[in-house]
Amino acid sequence: MDLLALADFTLVARHGGFGRAARAAGRPKATLSRRVAELEAALALRLFERGGRTLKLTEEGRTLYERAGHLLAELEQTAAAIAAGGEKPRGRLRISAPLLFSQTAMGKITAGFALNYPEVRLEVTTEDRPVDMIEEGFDLVIRVNPDPDDNLVGRIFLRDRLLAVASPRLPRPESNHPAPAVVRSAGDRQPWTLKTQDGGSTLAIEPLLAVSSLIMARDAVRAGVGAGRLPLSLVSHDLADGSLVAWGDIDAPDITLWTLYPSRRLLSARVSAFLAYLKQAFPAGTPEELAAFVGRS
């Protein structure tokens, strides 16, 4: 049944005529008449007895009006409650999140969220590839430095930055001598540019180990294999206890973590609740907050 046609029927029945209903709603009389006729045809029922100047509900029309009025009023109240945030989050919430953030933080985040919102069925998929939110049915995506997408809106909820770090047992090489390095790709031999007070310096590298995971890279750097370019949040505790030392900040844009969702639809109570939970976990969105949230690993 067409709910819009049903709403038009109840509008006409409530006002006792097409003309009065059209004036009250500010809509064309012909449109209301056509929609009611379509509803009658769909139900194979006559809902109004039409006279020269009068319009009277049939017995079937009166029954439908009484029952539909309660139904439509309940739907309006439910929609208003959801829009006002009064509806309790419930149902399925599908999230896609990047690998490193999932390995270090999403377990704790999702556990806390599940305890706070037991009626939400949370499903998290870990992957670094771009996903099609609409096609693949995700409600929310967390991404690192995402490309602009006109179909999505979102916000930054965390920032991080890269450091060149090494074991204190590994001496920093003299100028023009390459440093042994742990890299993400075997072909990565580009020098690292470090920030300094006078602008910057270049550190040549000699890759000794290539790994695809930043956690693996950190473990190798801890072991003294070579220096590494790693996020501050991942090595903050190592720097604090002296198991790693910083050779300098990498001269590169900040790492930004975004929450993204489709702009074509309003946020559900589930998505709004998860965004609020992230804001509560990371109110300032700094690398230090992420490191403190994750703890030592």
Rank of each mutant, 00 (worst) to 15 (best):
P148Q: 08
T110W: 01
A83R: 15
N116Q: 14
E127A: 15
L75A: 12
M106S: 03
E74P: 00
D128I: 04
P118Q: 06
A105V: 12
I109Q: 03
A97I: 12
G69H: 08
V120A: 02
A111N: 09
A84D: 09
N116V: 01
A79P: 01
L140G: 05
E87M: 11
D132F: 06
R129E: 12
F113H: 10
V141E: 14
E119V: 02
E66F: 01
G137F: 11
I134P: 00
A97L: 10
F138Q: 00
T110L: 06
E66T: 04
E127Q: 15
T78L: 14
D128Y: 06
G69K: 07
L71K: 00
D139A: 10
F138Y: 15
R143E: 14
P89N: 09
P118N: 04
V131N: 01
Q77H: 08
A114W: 08
V141D: 15
G85W: 01
Y65P: 00
M133L: 15
N151C: 08
E87T: 13
E136V: 08
I134N: 05
G69M: 05
I82L: 13
S96V: 13
M106H: 07
D128F: 05
G69I: 02
N116P: 00
Y65G: 00
L122H: 04
A97D: 08
S102G: 07
R94A: 13
I82G: 04
R92G: 02
V131M: 05
E87P: 01
G91V: 04
V131Y: 03
E135S: 10
E76G: 12
P118R: 08
T126D: 01
E119P: 07
T104S: 07
H70T: 10
R129N: 07
E76F: 08
E76N: 09
L115H: 13
V120C: 02
L100A: 10
E74W: 10
I142R: 02
R94D: 01
T110D: 03
E74K: 12
L64Q: 07
A105E: 11
R90C: 07
P146T: 11
E127I: 13
M106Q: 03
H70G: 04
F113E: 09
P146Q: 10
I95K: 06
R92E: 14
A73R: 12
L71M: 09
R94P: 02
S102C: 08
